[in-house]
């Protein structure tokens, strides 16, 4: 009895942890190549969810410029997810062009980029609110097609219920991890990306087109973020324009835990934090939100390079 309860919590933890993981992958991709954190990633994540909502042809609420409007057509859900992700990726590229590249061209302080990406995040979030209002949106239940909403892996007496959404989220995030790892380790572009991450100046001297690689990275980051946004929207509804911000903060804890710039680290960090949160006993449930940050604080003091990160040696 106790045992299935534990398993139930573990499954819940893995499901939410894999969302943290794909969210954090978006940060990690950009950090590994530019060494900066893109604070607008939470907004891109939110946009992905809204794009998908638009593409399935659903109707908007009563507020905002687009009140009561909808597309004249509706895409099937899986296609809409991909379309939404692609659009989110595109927004990522635009953000790079507007907020990152001008600063990079000048060799500006990374702090400036942080503030600039924050400005973009504020603008995007409020733009969403301007267009479609602050209300929550949820995808129609028909999104899964004919799949049941949940499956019981236990017995009727001691249930172990896994929601279909949780399974989808877990599978999709592992799939994204595998595809990204393949892209980075085995393709020409991936190798060039790693070269740029190692040393941008030398790479550009070697004839690698750094700007092109950087926008590809932003596209990938936005794409993955867009998928994550939709998946979370599917799981808990899109709670409004600020939907992605809470994840943005937890995503920071995840990438530090895993090791800044490490892709497997982001996934491991996400799963660890997700599971740790789900194991908080019901009596202390209010403190659940602090788990990620307590872990973050401790790991920074004990092992700042994270679980899978590399040590950096300071040169005198």
């Amino acid at each position: 009895m106790q045992f299935t309860l534990f398993f139930q919590q573990l499954v819940n933890g893995l499901a939410i942890g894999s969302v943290y993981a794909i969210f954090a992958l978006g940060y990690t991709l950009i950090f590994s190549i530019l060494g900066i954190i893109n604070f607008a990633h939470g907004a891109v994540f939110t946009l992905g969810a809204y794009f998908t909502y638009t593409l399935i042809g659903a109707k908007f609420g009563f507020n905002g410029l687009l009140a009561q409007s909808q597309l004249p057509f509706g895409l099937p859900f899986p296609l809409a997810v991909l379309g939404g992700a692609a659009l989110a990726g595109l927004v990522g590229v635009i953000i790079e062009r507007l907020a990152f590249r001008p600063l990079r061209a000048r060799g500006a302080d990374p702090l400036l980029t942080l503030v600039s990406s924050l400005g973009v995040a504020v603008a995007l979030v409020n733009f969403i609110q301007y267009l479609v209002g602050a209300e929550a949106y949820s995808y129609p239940s028909s999104a899964f097609g004919g799949l049941p909403p949940s499956v019981n892996f236990g017995t009727p007496e001691s249930p172990l219920i896994v929601r279909t959404v949780q399974i989808i989220i877990f599978v999709v995030s592992m799939l994204i991890l595998v595809v990204l790892t393949y892209l980075i380790n085995s393709t020409r572009t991936g190798k060039a990306l790693r070269a740029v991450a190692e040393d941008a100046t030398t790479s550009s001297l070697l004839g690698i087109n750094t700007d092109r690689l950087i926008w590809i990275t932003f596209f990938l980051s936005g794409f993955v973020g867009g998928i994550a946004g939709t998946l979370v929207g599917l799981s808990v509804t899109i709670t409004g324009p600020y939907f992605g911000i809470a994840f943005g903060l937890k995503g920071l804890a995840v990438i530090v835990l895993g090791g800044l710039g490490s892709i497997p680290g982001a996934v491991l960090g996400g799963l660890v934090i997700g599971v740790a949160e789900s194991l908080v006993p019901a009596s202390a449930i209010g403190y659940k939100e602090a788990v990620a940050f307590a872990i973050l604080f401790v790991i920074l003091l004990v092992r700042p390079q994270g679980l899978l990160g590399r040590t950096l040696i300071q040169k005198v």
Partner: peptide, 28 residues
């Protein structure tokens, strides 16, 4: 004393963690 051994973005993240822990404590 413990946190200021960290530099740059790591210190920023540690202080963000502090802010969040204070927030969650005050919620509870």
């Amino acid at each position: 004393i413990p946190a200021l051994r960290l530099r740059g973005i790591y210190l920023a993240l540690a202080t963000i963690a502090f802010v969040e822990v204070v927030r969650v404590l005050s919620l509870n």
